[in-house]
Each structure stands twice: as structure tokens, then as C-alpha cells.
């Protein structure tokens, strides 16, 4: 039982998906590692690291559940990978009037300044007439936070508010 898989399930959201999927996995003697579920719009998505038998066996267990719930199922074999978590040391918050290209500009400039993104979340708020874009990124600043701050500063001139601050992890 040392085979690990990344399961991805995507589809229209409805109550009960997580319980149905995890119960099927449990009944098939699979173990869950890290997992992350998020709802985007009206859509459900989850990625789960699962330890179990062979890929065909995992698929046989999940396919009927996925079909019943209207979900697309994707399975990839992965390296066993628990306890590999990176700890972010920088948080970037960006917001401004919604326009094309904000995420591409921010992430490209930050990447060139040494950012490894660990977590990214974005949303559109405001009104339909005046939409605003909100972006939050956590990551590891491999060349330091000042380098990222300097790289992103020019975007402020385009009316995008960019806030870069350290994440200090307290170990006690």
C-alpha cells in the first residue's frame, strides 16, 4: 500500500460530494494525505493525495461515485510526498480596477524577482459597472522580499495597489 495518487474531481457543486468521495475511498482501504477543496463560482473542485492499491482499483471505486455526482475524475500516480510542505515567507496582496493582464504582470515580475508561489487566490468584486480585481499570493521569496517589492512597485503607477509583506512563522 505504498502507491500514491493525486485525485482531481471537478464539476457542478452540490451538497454531499466530499462525504461521498471520501467514504468510497475509505471503503476501498485508501488513506488520505493532504487535500484541498474549493468552490469557484458554482463549481466544485478538490485535489486529494491518496495512498491506495493500484490505479485501476482506485478508478473502479471512484468512477461510479463521480458519475453519480456529475464530476470529472482525473488520477495521476505521484511520488510519495507527505511532509514536503514549504513554509511561505511573503504575502502579496493586489487590488485595483479589473482589467486584463493583472495576474500575468504581477506573477511574471515576481517570478523574475525570485518568487515561488505556494498559494494563489483571486476574485472579482465591486459592481458589474465597476468591477475590481483582488489577488492574494503566498510564496517563498528566494531572493528576499525587497527584490519582489522593487519588481512590483512600477505597477502602482498603473493604478494597481500592490502590498508586499513578510510572513513570519513563529516556532514556539
Amino acid at each position: 500500500m505504498s502507491n500514491w495518487y493525486m485525485l482531481t474531481l471537478v464539476g457542478k457543486d452540490r451538497p454531499g460530494i466530499v462525504a461521498a468521495v471520501t467514504t468510497a475511498l475509505f471503503d476501498a482501504d485508501c488513506n488520505l494525505g493532504e487535500s484541498s477543496m474549493i468552490r469557484l463560482g458554482q463549481n466544485f473542485s478538490v485535489m486529494m493525495m491518496v495512498e491506495g492499491g493500484d490505479e485501476a482499483g482506485v478508478r473502479a471505486v471512484l468512477q461510479p461515485v463521480a458519475e453519480r455526482l456529475g464530476l470529472a475524475l482525473h488520477i495521476d500516480a505521484i511520488d510519495p510526498g507527505l511532509h514536503q510542505r514549504l513554509v511561505p515567507d511573503v504575502c502579496i496582496r493586489v487590488h485595483g480596477a479589473d482589467r486584463a493582464g493583472i495576474v500575468a504582470q504581477v506573477t511574471t515580475r515576481a517570478e523574475q524577482a525570485g518568487l515561488n508561489i505556494l498559494d494563489l487566490e483571486s476574485d472579482v468584486g465591486g459592481t458589474e459597472q465597476q468591477p475590481i480585481y483582488i489577488l492574494q499570493i503566498e510564496g517563498v521569496a528566494e531572493q528576499g522580499i525587497d527584490a519582489i517589492q522593487t519588481a512590483l512597485a512600477p505597477l502602482q503607477a498603473d493604478g494597481v495597489k500592490v502590498d508586499v509583506h513578510p510572513i513570519e512563522t513563529l516556532i514556539g
Partner: peptide, 13 residues
């Protein structure tokens, strides 16, 4: 809000 870890809780923050 801040991020914490603990000697008594290895490998999690």
C-alpha cells in the same frame, strides 16, 4: 493574524 508552528507539532504551520 500570524503564522505559527510548534516544537510539539512537527511539520505543520
Amino acid at each position: 493574524m500570524g503564522r505559527e508552528g510548534c516544537l510539539s507539532v512537527p511539520d505543520y504551520t
